[in-house]
Nucleic acid binder design. Sequence first.
DNA 1: ATGAAAGCGCTAACAC
DNA 2: GTGTTAGCGCTTTCAT
Lengths: 339, 339
Amino acid sequence: MPTRLKDIANALDVSIVTVSKVLRGKTDVSAETRDRILRKMEELNYKPNMIARGLASGRSLTVGLVVPDIADPFFAELARSLGAHLRRSQYQLLLASADESPAVEQHEIENLLQRGVDALLIASCQTDPASLNSALARSTPCVLLDRALPGSNANFVGTDDVLAGRLATEHLLSLKRTRIAHIGSEGTSTANDRLLGYREALAHRGIPADPALTLACDLHSGRPDLLGYNAMRRLLERPEHPDAVFCYSDLLAVGAIRAAREFGRRVPEDIAIIGCGNLPISAYLEVPLSSMDQGTAELGEHASSLALQLIGSKTRSKPRSVLISPRVVVRASTGLPRA
Amino acid sequence: MPTRLKDIANALDVSIVTVSKVLRGKTDVSAETRDRILRKMEELNYKPNMIARGLASGRSLTVGLVVPDIADPFFAELARSLGAHLRRSQYQLLLASADESPAVEQHEIENLLQRGVDALLIASCQTDPASLNSALARSTPCVLLDRALPGSNANFVGTDDVLAGRLATEHLLSLKRTRIAHIGSEGTSTANDRLLGYREALAHRGIPADPALTLACDLHSGRPDLLGYNAMRRLLERPEHPDAVFCYSDLLAVGAIRAAREFGRRVPEDIAIIGCGNLPISAYLEVPLSSMDQGTAELGEHASSLALQLIGSKTRSKPRSVLISPRVVVRASTGLPRA
DNA sequence: ATGAAAGCGCTAACAC
DNA sequence: GTGTTAGCGCTTTCAT
């Protein structure tokens, strides 16, 4: 059986309260008593029971994180960054992966709330905004990550996706490409915003948006690389081919490149392709992939700071929004010989 | 404030215990009372407080997982598989990433134990076996994942790494290669075992192990791709070049391929290269990478089953060991035109 | 500077 | 079937 406060107290003939005070660094304990207690804790290898502490204090020193898929490199990196930052503030990250299922996500959110997390970070795969509102309505502070919720005015930390779409497209425009396609996704704010940025960039150059050059994949329906492959095939079967493509994600781009090459197109000479997310392995792909870097580590830093801040503030402050600026990383798929 | 058992009990003029019994599906409650209670729970949107339940019952319905790095695709996939399986048994996974630091790992292990996890799964990055023993000595059931602890006879679930090394090397031998190198790692059981399998395979064919063909990288010292790159350079600078390489991990292999090609070697014609881990993106690399698949999902399944079993059994049963058989996946880096 | 009393929300054992 | 009593290990408030 592990040592309890009671054991220390008994051994030293002091009260449990006094021991508890030392444990929590209260100053109203004599230096001598404190020393004896600290020594005894050491000797008996005392470790506080966080469950009991949580129940008594109402705070668990815990932050929950729900991601759509922990095996997605972006969310894995985000989780790592968050965990590292929270650890420095004595907080522990509780991680749940929703496996791309809104139902599982709902379940995991409830679960974490029932476990008494002090704050909840959610990168939602929900298509229906309503289901998140029940969580946001609770008294536990919540931060939406990466994907914003259209109507809601919740706390949010994520990439400036409109800017991502714009910068990616402008990069392609700078390569003198004129028929620029977009292989996108649907349902999420990230998908909508990147599409928006893409259109903005084209409009800014006076290029009409050709609806035949915009495809949306249902990312729930299969492996993204294969979806990208099929999307590119459809683009190439059309009479007027694109000479560049901005893909919603790197994995879509990887599949798109594969398709382009199988159909005899050279990348980037015939078709320049850029993705988004900046996969760590981008530089080693069959065609090193240009991409939008989302500053994932920075994102995690902001998110954990915001979470801790919300926990600290007594009153429910007005929702804050933090947008991280993405940047273009150029590799061979849009022209650089090697990265 | 969230609803408590007490609120239900008061509203219905029954005792808290009766409500608690309904909550836990005990049968010694009349059908009518049960119905009233269930209805009231629904109406007041009751959610049990898992912290209080944990403190009272001594079980948290929680399993902890510590991995060296959650951003490593292998561990991410493992975490996903574990989480999914545990969820089906009403258990929640608490995930901690040690960021490749033994000190952080130790800290996270303590932390999870203090949070009252019912079982602890550890993929350790510890080099010193002793530090794990303090955790293994506790009453909380423990399972070592992926990496075994040399002296200890703890529960273990992992890949049969000797077999992995043997199969990989035999595959290279089947391609008529005779000077087969190994770019390995050190300190972990996985590294030792894969090296062992490599040597076994060579010995079995009567090929003497040339020490000049075996390199070990310190994976803590930098990005694995660059370590693989440098290791391959060193191999190529030597008078007698290898005609094949078995790499400890896929990322090492990726770097090795890059180096080989930069030095004018064709892969696989001049040098065949196989990795281990079977990265999801293997097929899209500059040279699609042959690799040893570790059956990660299966591994997670076995690990969660074992964990639940240990939780269930009153007595501390004798340690069990589960070894998953890896299999060769052939792609272009060892000869297939495309995968 | 120290501690007694009360309780966090729930479960476990035993009575009725 | 239902309820009573007694905690789980800790914190909180308030006396002393």
